[in-house]
Computed example of a mutant assay.
Amino acid sequence: MMTNLFNSFDPSTNIFSLNWLSTFLGLLFIPSMFWLIPSRWNFLWIKIIMILHNEFKILLGTKIKGSTLIFISLFSIIMFNNFLGLFPYIFTSSSHLVLTLTLALPLWVSFMIYGWLNNTVHMFAHLVPQGTPPVLMPFMVLIESISNIIRPGTLAVRLAANMIAGHLLMTLLGNTGSSLSLLMINLLILTQLLLLILESAVAIIQSYVFAVLSTLYSSEVN
Rank of each mutant, 00 (worst) to 15 (best):
S73R: 15
L44S: 12
F34C: 08
L69A: 11
L172V: 10
S218H: 08
Q206R: 04
W20A: 02
H122S: 09
E144I: 04
G115E: 01
P152L: 01
P11F: 03
Y208D: 14
V121R: 15
F71C: 02
I149K: 10
N81K: 12
Y114W: 03
L99V: 04
P138H: 06
L117P: 06
F71R: 11
F111Y: 08
Y89H: 05
G26Q: 05
R158N: 15
P134A: 12
G153D: 01
L52P: 01
N186S: 14
S8Q: 11
I58S: 09
V141P: 07
I164P: 06
G26L: 00
L142T: 10
W108F: 08
I164L: 06
L194E: 12
V109M: 10
L159W: 10
T13F: 07
S178H: 10
A211Y: 05
I90Q: 13
L196S: 04
A160K: 03
L213D: 07
L101N: 08
L21V: 13
I205H: 07
L60D: 13
F139S: 08
I143Y: 15
H96G: 12
I77Y: 02
L103R: 00
M2P: 11
G177C: 08
N14C: 05
P129K: 09
H126I: 14
N118Y: 06
T100F: 00
T68F: 03
L44Y: 08
G166Q: 12
I189C: 02
I64Y: 03
H126M: 15
T215Q: 11
V121M: 13
S181R: 06
Y208N: 01
L159P: 10
R151Q: 10
V221H: 11
L60H: 07
N81S: 15
P138Y: 02
S94C: 02
I37G: 04
L101A: 14
N42H: 14
H167P: 08
E144W: 10
N82D: 02
